[in-house]
Each structure stands twice: as structure tokens, then as C-alpha cells.
């Protein structure tokens, strides 16, 4: 289980999150929705310690940190190892081929030998439909292909939680569909996904759980059925803005 408790964060005068708490359960897909600037990405980035709240705490499985003081590298890395992020901008390493991007991380983490990592890379790249592009450099791939390699790279380190930060926002609809298909596939086999997205349809069809952020805190936490049937004015307004996009 992943649990964020009472986290707050301000950027300058802008209080992005105020005392927000949420839990992510294992083996299901949690989708975080909310208008732009509601702190969705920030909340997701807390889970992987790419950003730090000013207060609150995070516990993932048997590791936990309390925010506010200085954390050691060892503390950060022990929490971080439980999750891996797929970024909106892919962030593949341009100086490494597809297979190196995917096979190097588990080797550097000391989890797999080079040969095992290579085998695992082939396996996860096959899963995302990129198994025949091993020696290509990222620059020669389309955005959708790069994003699928990025998903394979995250899978290669075998995290307990896969975090997606608007993974299809930078993609044309056709390429986005290829990426979404991979995510649906991962969700259906019981992986724990946490997805920040504006893709309402994805929330409707794939999510087991929807968390809605508004005005710096969790405004809704429940099933997609409950969410889409909600008569909250805030949620209705959100759906009418983003639901038709």
C-alpha cells in the first residue's frame, strides 16, 4: 500500500496542495483527475520523491519518510525504489539505444546481471510492441514509440507502483492510443498503476478508483461509477470542461 498523509506544498504564494491525504491500493489502477494547476502532477511526484512536500509523510510498503526535515540519500532511495515514473516528455536517455535505456537500470540497481537484464529488456520491449527496435536511438522514434520504450524502461526495474504523469498529453491521438493500449494491458494483469491524466475516458474505462483534486485537496475519492454520477458542482464543472475534449 502507498499512503500519502497530510501533504502540503506551496510554490511561492501559490498553495498548490493543502493537507492532502490519499492511499493507493495494490493491484489496481488509480486515476488522479483535476483541473490544470490542481496539484495532480505534484502529488504524483511526491510518491517518487521527485518533489518534496513541506509537511506530511509518505509510506510505501515497508518504507516510510516524514517530510519537513532533511532526508538522507539512503532514505530517499529506499522509498524511491518502490515506484517508477513515466513522464509526459518520455525523458529517454538520447545517448543510449533502446535496449540500453531499458537494460541498464536494473544492472546499475544491482538487481540483474547484464545477460539477465538484456533478456528482461527484450521481454518488456516485446510487451510494449518495441521488441524489434532494440538498436535504435530514441531520436529516431516517434513520440508514441518513445513513450512505449519509457514504459518498458519503468517496467524493467520492476517497481511496485508504476506512476504515469500525463503520459499521452504530448502525443497525437493515434500515437496516444498505442500508449493507452499498453497501459490498459498492464492494468488488466493486476499491476498497480497511478495515472495523472486528462483522459476522462481512460478513467471511465480502466480506473478502479478515481481521485479528484480541486483547490489543493482531495475533493473526491471513490469508484469511477460514483465519480461520474456525482452531483457535486465542482466535479460537474470539471467534466463539462474536460469530458468533451
Amino acid at each position: 500500500m502507498l499512503e500519502l498523509k497530510n501533504v502540503s506544498k506551496a510554490f511561492g504564494d501559490n498553495q498548490v496542495l493543502q493537507d492532502a491525504s490519499l492511499t493507493v491500493r495494490d493491484g489496481e489502477t488509480t486515476v488522479i483527475l483535476g483541473p490544470s494547476g490542481s496539484g495532480k502532477s505534484t502529488l504524483l511526484r511526491f510518491m517518487n520523491l521527485l518533489e518534496f512536500p513541506e509537511t506530511g509523510s509518505l509510506s510505501i510498503n515497508d518504507d516510510a519518510v516524514t517530510f519537513g526535515g532533511r532526508l538522507t540519500d539512503a532514505q530517499i532511495r529506499s522509498v524511491r525504489k518502490h515506484s517508477a515514473m513515466v513522464f509526459q516528455g518520455y525523458n529517454l536517455f538520447p545517448n543510449q539505444t533502446v535496449v540500453d535505456n531499458v537494460s541498464l537500470p536494473p544492472v546499475l540497481n544491482g538487481k540483474l546481471s547484464k545477460a539477465q537484464a538484456r533478456e528482461r529488456a527484450q521481454e518488456v520491449l516485446d510487451r510494449v510492441g518495441m521488441g524489434d527496435r532494440l538498436d535504435e536511438y530514441p531520436d529516431n522514434l516517434s513520440g508514441g514509440q518513445q513513450q512505449r520504450v519509457a514504459i518498458a524502461r519503468a517496467l524493467a526495474v520492476d517497481p511496485d507502483y508504476l506512476l504515469f504523469d500525463e503520459p499521452t498529453s504530448a502525443l497525437d491521438p493515434e500515437l496516444a492510443a498505442d500508449v493507452t493500449r499498453v497501459m490498459v494491458d498492464l492494468a488488466s494483469e493486476g499491476r498497480s498503476l497511478v495515472v495523472v491524466t486528462h483522459n476522462i475516458e481512460f478513467a471511465r474505462q480502466v480506473a478502479k478508483r478515481v481521485i479528484f483534486l480541486a483547490d489543493g485537496s482531495v475533493g473526491f475519492d471513490g469508484t469511477p461509477e460514483e465519480f461520474f454520477a456525482s452531483d457535486s458542482e465542482r466535479i460537474q464543472r470539471y467534466l463539462s470542461t474536460y469530458g468533451t475534449a
Binding site: 520523491l49 521527485l50 517508477a84 513522464f87 516528455g89 525523458n91 540497481n109 526495474v157
Partner: peptide, 30 residues
């Protein structure tokens, strides 16, 4: 070097040295 490169190294749980050796140095050298 874009910040996203460093963040990718972080999410893969690279140490500082690994990030320098495999991500920053090769790209900076180019």
C-alpha cells in the same frame, strides 16, 4: 542538459555517480 534527464535517472534510482557517469557526462561531452 534538460532537467527531465536528471529526473529520469532519479526515478530509476540511480546514484549520483551513476547519473554523472551514464547520463550527464556523455551528453555534456557531446
Amino acid at each position: 542538459i534538460p532537467r527531465g534527464q536528471i529526473e529520469a535517472a532519479k526515478t530509476l534510482n540511480y546514484t549520483g555517480w551513476q547519473t554523472l557517469r551514464h547520463v550527464i557526462a556523455p551528453q555534456a561531452l557531446r
